[in-house]
Write a protein that binds this DNA or RNA. Structure first.
Length: 183
DNA sequence: TGCACGATGAAC
DNA sequence: TTCATCGTGCAC
């Protein structure tokens, strides 16, 4: 399996968010590789993007967003679900891509359409925060079979509070894929 | 030290 | 439309 290198993440966040579609998310739990094909993402551009957590400043929670690209930013939402993000762009630029849905490929039980369900099914929680995605616990990889896809662009979900930023087309998903989250 | 609320999901 | 459930961030 060909793992994505640091350079992949060290680029424009919108480009990374689009290119992540179709890639494989791999999480190793008890020696078993759980593999999901990424079908939906959202881009969070940085402190100027009012929908991004980094817009509220550098805090203990958002620290990894401000760090180097290719690391996982995982946080607890609504007291019961975890959301996984991939940190992008240079060290100091607090941007990331939220993984919103995957399609089960291998060893994945349960539903995976939505950031909370995806994290639960893949075995991702706050313990993964700050994890190096070029390492062995959790990483992204080129799919074994590349498929041609069409990308749909929509406004991001659940960020109505962000004013004009809520209208930006920063949610991306694979057209026609049945594992994309509803809403 | 307290408290309002969220990049969600499921039930009603 | 309501609710579960709790860490975070900011007000006091």
């Amino acid at each position: 399996m060909e793992r994505l290198a640091r350079e992949f993440y060290d680029r424009d966040t919108v480009v990374v968010a689009k290119e992540l579609l179709g890639k494989w998310l791999v999480r190793v739990v008890d020696g078993v590789e759980r593999v999901g094909r990424i079908v939906e993402t959202e881009a969070y551009l940085g402190p100027h993007d009012l929908a991004a957590h980094s817009a509220r400043g550098r805090t203990a929670r958002t620290e990894v967003m401000f760090g180097r690209p290719g690391f996982a930013y995982v946080y607890l939402i609504y007291g019961m679900y975890h959301c996984m993000n991939v940190v992008t762009e240079r060290d100091g630029h607090a941007a990331a891509v939220l993984l919103r849905a995957v399609e089960p490929v291998r060893n994945v039980e349960g539903r995976t359409q939505g950031p909370g369900l995806l994290s639960r099914a893949m075995g991702i929680d706050r313990g993964m925060n700050g994890c190096d995605l070029t390492g062995d616990e959790c990483f992204l990889a080129e799919p074994e079979v590349a498929e041609r896809i069409r990308i749909v662009k929509r406004p991001r979900v659940g960020v109505d509070y962000a004013g004009v930023w809520a209208k930006r087309l920063l949610r991306f998903y694979i057209e026609g894929n049945g594992f994309v989250s509803k809403r």
